[in-house]
Design a protein around this nucleic acid. Structure first.
Lengths: 243, 243
DNA sequence: CGCATTATTGAAATACTTCAAATACGGTGG
DNA sequence: CCACCGTATTTGAAGTATTTCAATAATGCG
């Protein structure tokens, strides 16, 4: 229950994250307002609200989603350790999507007012904030391309591949499996597929011996085929800054 | 052919853009490396490249797009006056999509190296850069929701509504029509629809007396119905910073 | 153990794609 | 100004991926 010092942050130092400069750790320690533990199912940020807090995910996972007028839900993406939450509220004034914990989570908490301090006194960290936003933008562009151009099988393969790579990059799971604590409905809502079709497509991937996802664990048996099906060429995970 | 002084920028001062603080205009004038006029069809930024230049669109329009392994194209969105191009290359090192001029264009040019100066010496402008990125992220989230959850008619209505509002916000066109210099193929590639289906859906909107798009001009006859069809609730255009 | 949630499966309905061919448009050169 | 050619739009018809409906099976939580 005691707060993790940034010095001992379990994420910092992982290859996927840009290394901290000396002094940045110290600043982040001051910037950090505290730590928040939330239960599965908690809505961390809500569409339309101007949250006074920003977060970095330390442990656990979440879904970012929007709800449309007719009640349908679009999962924008899945948040995992190292992801930064609430930037929209931080700079635009209000969140444009909601964030809900898919597991119990631990979050680093930053105060919104401090963002301005950061821009005034820590240009390198301000730059990183923009960088983070640009990376998000890039991934959303990928998602747009997936929903616009890939068929059902390609979409599911694309999502499983990305999730697997990202989770492995933050040292979760084993060589060929990762925890994936979402429901098929969440994946369907992320990919613009019906639950039924998502289910049948997952079954097809299992049948082909490519990947199987059951009981919150994704096991990838043939990652090359998965990547081929997904039509992904990028070889390695994007390096990004960590807040 | 001579360079527009930022002082006399035709975009600054429009309601859609956040007003400049005193001093910011002066800074931007120094930040501005020049002006670039390009012809229709020119590729301004190319996927994978690390452009040494960033741009603000002064006049004209463009498509931002990605090409997938199988050759299909996803139009990420359409760029219009006031939009900032090249931020990804500016902070992440390389563009993740290409940008092609759909009309002759005039662009303000900024040098990539100067971005760092901006972060060190102009925190308010650095903040705006992040803000711009967050706004883009927001719109891409909307696009993801559109491709994931809306059917053909809703998608087309959504796109026409947004384009119309945005173009009106930068003072193009008349009360009920705007220039829209793209091909139906571009719209289809933006919405993840086949050309044929996009065409038939546009015909349906015309038949219903909602909107008609021909010869590069979009005329909206019934904007309320268009908005209803699109399932959009937001009443007004997002205010954003201008670079 | 029992109840609510999630996953699975089959079958019918449909929105959208693909194929193919005709028409219209816009720019260029004569 | 017209004829021509390449590009863009329009239309019909057949095929298919995906959705919807509906019901059963499995899972996990209290």
């Amino acid at each position: 229950m005691t707060m993790t010092p940034c010095e001992a942050c379990p994420l910092r130092g992982m290859e996927i994250f840009v290394p901290f400069d000396p002094g940045e750790v110290e600043f982040m320690q001051k910037f950090k307002a505290g730590e928040l533990a939330v239960e599965r199912g908690t809505t961390i940020l809500i569409e339309g609200s101007k949250s006074p807090q920003l977060f970095t995910v330390l442990r656990g996972m979440a879904t970012r989603y929007k709800t449309l007028e007719d009640g349908s839900r679009q999962v924008i993406n899945f948040a995992m350790p190292g992801d930064f939450l609430g930037l929209q509220a931080g700079v635009m004034g209000a969140m444009r999507h909601s964030v809900e914990a898919a597991t119990d989570m631990v979050l680093c908490v930053f105060k919104r007012e401090e963002v301005w301090t950061l821009f005034r006194t820590q240009p390198s960290r301000a730059f990183d904030l923009t960088w983070i936003s640009a990376v998000e933008e890039h991934f959303l562009g990928e998602t747009v391309a997936t929903l616009g151009q890939r068929d059902g099988l390609q979409r599911v393969a694309w999502a499983l591949f990305r999730l697997f790579k990202r989770l492995r990059a933050v040292k979760l799971g084993t060589r060929d499996s990762v925890p994936l604590p979402f429901r098929q409905q969440d994946l369907a809502d992320a990919l613009g597929l019906s639950l039924v079709h998502a289910n049948k497509t997952l079954a097809e991937l299992k049948r082909r011996g490519v990947a199987r996802w059951a009981k919150g664990v994704l096991e990838v048996q043939d990652i090359d085929t998965l990547q081929d099906l997904a039509m992904i060429d990028e070889p390695k995970e994007e390096r990004r800054p960590l807040m």
